[in-house]
């Protein structure tokens, strides 16, 4: 098997920056004094020392009345109630699952906070605790919502809705959580036939669109459908969407359905999906998408 391998010099690296904003906000860096006054409350990213408020992370200031926070450019995912997350099951424990969600501590999914597939009602019994591994195994990917945040910052998840639960076939992409825009809806069916879950924790799930009728089917039917092979064109579209997201991430653009869709439409001029991995192509796609976003904002 032969193929073209392109290896480029570090000096020929492509600068992925597409932002056009010239005016920059005031940046704070660790140890810098924000204010010497006492009448402010210290929020995240700040600490009080020697009668003054200092920054502990590098970023920009956010001020709400008297509360001062410094928000870093990127950090681990900090969960908030109602966030949609995609996570991976790490461990099956007594009446709960441990889920990795790119947060500071592992998240917890209680057995009492799941809906069994097919809308089957759960009987609280010893058997169904033993059936837990049948439902979700180590290594399974799930989508869930943050139900509550514990005092130590770890998250409690729930999947009490038909849209949440185990993710069958698709592609997972990890991006920095700060790039995901908080939106009302994080589940999207893109017009190109890919459904996408943009988790607030920076995990993005791409899967072929499935028929809604299926939700009414029983458990076995769903399982059977989930195991059907995905055809090539669907897989190619998913790969294209994934490369579009990679292009947006390389240029540090915010991710939501509009920006991904714009990038997808711009990417159609590259007939082959793998051409989109070229740094110049990535920059081109991100730049055109940014341009369209700017136009959309102006209108």
């Amino acid at each position: 098997m032969t193929g073209h391998v392109s290896i480029r010099l570090a000096s020929e690296r492509v600068n992925h920056s597409v932002s056009s904003s010239n005016e920059l906000p005031r940046f704070y860096t660790p140890g810098e004094v924000i204010t010497g006054m006492q009448d402010f409350m210290r929020g995240h990213g700040t600490y009080a020392e020697d009668d003054s408020l200092k920054a502990s992370v590098a970023g920009v200031m956010q001020k709400v009345n008297k509360l001062i926070c410094i928000r870093p450019l990127k950090s681990r995912y900090v969960g908030e109630i109602g966030d949609v997350v995609v996570g991976r099951v790490l461990e099956v424990q007594q009446r709960r699952w441990k889920v990795e969600t790119n947060s500071r501590l592992d998240s917890v999914l209680q057995l009492s906070a799941v809906n069994l597939p097919g809308g089957e009602l759960r009987r609280r019994s010893a058997e169904d605790e033993q059936m837990m591994r049948k439902h979700l195994q180590e290594g399974d990917l799930i989508s869930a919502e943050v139900q509550s945040v514990f005092s130590d910052g770890s998250l409690s998840l729930h999947t009490r809705s038909l849209k949440y639960g185990k993710l069958p076939q698709g592609t997972l992409m990890k991006v920095f959580p700060s790039l995901v825009k908080r939106r009302k809806n994080h589940f999207h069916n893109l017009p190109c036939g890919v459904s996408i879950i943009i988790g607030n924790n920076g995990f993005i799930w791409l899967s072929p669109q499935k028929q809604d009728v299926l939700y009414e089917g029983n458990k076995d039917e769903i399982e059977e459908y989930d195991l059907q092979p995905v055809n090539r064109s669907d897989r190619e579209t998913m790969a294209r969407v994934k490369n579009c997201i990679a292009a947006l991430v390389a240029s540090k653009m915010m991710l939501d359905d509009t920006s991904i869709m714009f990038a997808y439409e711009e990417s159609l001029k590259y007939p082959s999906v793998k051409d989109m991995l070229d740094p110049e192509a990535m920059l081109d796609i991100a730049f055109l998408a940014q341009h369209r976003i700017n136009n959309a904002i102006e209108e």
Partner: peptide
Amino acid sequence: VRDHLAEGWTKQDI
């Protein structure tokens, strides 16, 4: 660090 922040900063972040 400041140069890096300026480079990674996008307006939509606000």
